[in-house]
């Protein structure tokens, strides 16, 4: 979207590594917003030939009223979720961040490279995932946790909505995901902005 074409929806960018669940997260975010009553939502996974561990991107667009007709990649997101703080070492990732950024990171991470963004929130999603046994093949799966943190930061959907969708989507593992997401919701904290 461009500066002189009117924008009337929320744009969210996901930065993650293949296998962390960022692409599923962009889809789940749309499902939460849709369940919450948003009229139109769109998730755009930047997929092609991904590899586990490689940097990946996904996008979500959420509109309360108007139809989303714009399918291009997001250049200037309102919110960005960074699933792995080591991605900030990639200059093109760090410099592309704008708006509010939610990062999966421990407290001590160096954030000077993204001092230009509007606000920064941190959540230690990796540890929450490990403690809640949200693991696949030894990898912590972070999607629902990051979206729990996002719910707190934006207030766009409630924990109840998350619970409902997670139970529909993941059956018996829905509750486990929900408990971890709630923990992320409660522990995410603003560190700048």
């Amino acid at each position: 979207m461009t500066a002189n074409l009117e924008k009337d929806f929320t744009e969210v960018t996901f930065h993650g590594r293949g296998g962390q669940g960022a692409i599923t997260a962009s889809n789940l975010l749309c499902a939460f917003a849709f369940e919450e009553g948003y009229n139109d939502v769109l998730d755009i996974p930047k997929i092609g030939a991904e590899r586990r561990g490689a940097p990946i991107q996904a996008f979500s667009k959420l509109s309360k009223e108007k139809e989303i007709k714009d399918f291009c990649a997001i250049k200037s997101a309102d919110y960005t979720l960074v699933f792995d703080f080591t991605l900030l070492d990639i200059p093109s990732v760090a410099t592309s961040l704008k708006g509010t950024v939610i990062i999966n990171a421990p407290d001590f991470v160096d954030l000077d490279c993204i001092a230009h963004v509007k606000a920064i929130w941190l959540v230690d999603a990796t540890n929450i995932a490990i403690n809640n046994n949200l693991m696949i093949s030894g990898y912590p799966i972070l999607n629902t946790l990051m979206l729990g943190a996002y719910a707190k930061v934006t207030g766009q959907y409630t924990l109840e909505t998350m619970k409902k969708v997670l139970n529909q989507r993941f059956g018996s593992r829905g509750e486990q995901n929900y408990i971890a997401a709630k923990e992320a919701f409660e522990s995410v904290k603003k560190v700048r902005g």
Binding site: F34, D40, L42, D43, I47, G48
Partner: peptide
């Protein structure tokens, strides 16, 4: 492909 096949909408 992808732009419609793999994106979701209501």
């Amino acid at each position: 492909g992808f732009i419609l096949s793999h994106t979701s909408k209501p």
